[in-house]
Design a protein around this nucleic acid. Structure first.
Lengths: 223, 223
DNA sequence: ATCTTCTGTACTGGTTTCCAGTACAAAAGG
DNA sequence: CCTTTTGTACTGGAAACCAGTACAGAAGAT
């Protein structure tokens, strides 16, 4: 198929090796081609606005602002581009947030390329792709019982609170978190207070302890 | 260069996409070739024993048993194969463990392929490659006591420091620790500073994280 | 036996964080 | 349409953090 007729795909992914492999995989297909790549949310946003691709593949955890934020920004601007969200973590927690924010698919980086391609084709065809592992759980969470009490109180954190929680778990200071998420230190403090409240923690030490144990646990799962 | 003369490389990595990309990168080189791939520690161990490669590239976090265990098993068997450890996490904690366990290099998956190749060549040449970001930290950590039996630097803490460390791990504030141990808050601050120094930690957050994970680990062992 | 390092204790003074509030606009939900 | 949630931000005082310095007694080293 001539290049101009192929489906245009934009990649927003900050791990160079993974991005290369993904681009290679896509360009090998007869009917699609990567038209732009970005390694951060800002460039990704610009590229998607400019290219109006048939599909954007976005890593949920980018340096700086997260992929989730990028997706929300796109939707806020009225963009309807189908988005396949990529994640390192096989947690339905993230899948659910991605879908709520308007993604058409969610898949982890652990998958083999064949399955990634399945997801891409499905989303390109206008359908929703969801990693079978948490299909059931996410569906019930979103459709059946939207306001149900979460299995772990961590699930009750908002997207932004969760992002802060993760960074705290990595041992970042309040200032560093603020820089990373590009908001004021004061804002981070508000999030910390809300997180402590939601999780029933009394002070900064307990917050650090909880956050770091959660991060470790999650890494263990991610294996 | 004919295939038989190339340096043989074994890959042990459970993320298929990443493994493919890595293999592709290596096989593109004139002077090296992937001779075996594995997606778990067991198969990796067998492949390395069988192939006696010039280099093994091992992901530190594999499904099931970790890459660190695999490395230790190899060394326990007397194998001298140079190992380049791959990690998803840019934490010096892991780098240190990898080097202690006998790795010749440590690099994160965030790096661009050029840098990965630099690491590979350096290790193949018999040198040590370390992500420049934590070169300094790790060196100072390891050189402090090169041949010591201390499996973990935590064993180097004095009695008082350890007592403080445990209380921090339980989420106590500096003031609470002072009250508990009946010494001045200022004294606790001194201990905190010394602990951070001995463990190579940068700030209070990392101290909390380390302390709490150590406390958890310990409880797990105690039953 | 003496010199040096380690350990336990504590302080100062300056920076940063923590905490308890308050505020407000936009989005979501009811 | 009204209420709650979410994201953002501020203030002002308390607490914690950090980089030094200090010093005496214990432990080790020459």
């Amino acid at each position: 198929m001539p290049r101009e007729m192929r489906a245009k795909v934009v990649l927003v992914e900050d791990h160079p090796m993974f991005r290369e492999q993904l681009a290679h995989l896509i360009n090998k297909q007869e009917d699609m081609a990567v038209c732009a790549e970005a390694d951060n949310a800002g460039d990704g946003f610009a590229a998607i606005k400019r290219q109006q691709p048939s599909l954007a593949i976005i890593d949920i955890t980018l340096k700086g602002s997260s992929g989730l934020e990028l997706l929300k920004d796109l939707r806020a601007q009225g963009s309807k581009v189908p988005v396949l969200m990529l994640s390192m973590h096989p947690e339905s927690l993230y899948a659910e947030r991605a879908l709520r924010a308007g993604a058409s698919g969610y898949i982890t980086k652990e998958e083999a390329s064949a399955r990634v391609m399945t997801a891409i084709r499905q989303v390109l065809a206008g359908e929703i792709y969801l990693d079978p592992r948490f299909m059931k759980r996410v569906i019930s969470q979103i459709l059946v019982d939207p306001g149900s009490k979460a299995a772990t109180p961590i699930e009750r954190l908002t997207d932004r609170e969760l992002a802060v929680f993760e960074l705290i778990g990595e041992g970042r200071t309040t200032r560093e978190v603020g820089l990373r998420l590009r908001v004021s230190v004061a804002t981070i403090e508000t999030y910390r207070a809300r997180i402590k409240e939601k999780l029933g923690l009394e002070n900064a030490g307990q917050l650090h302890a909880k956050a770091s144990s959660w991060v470790h646990e999650r890494h263990a799962i991610a294996g």
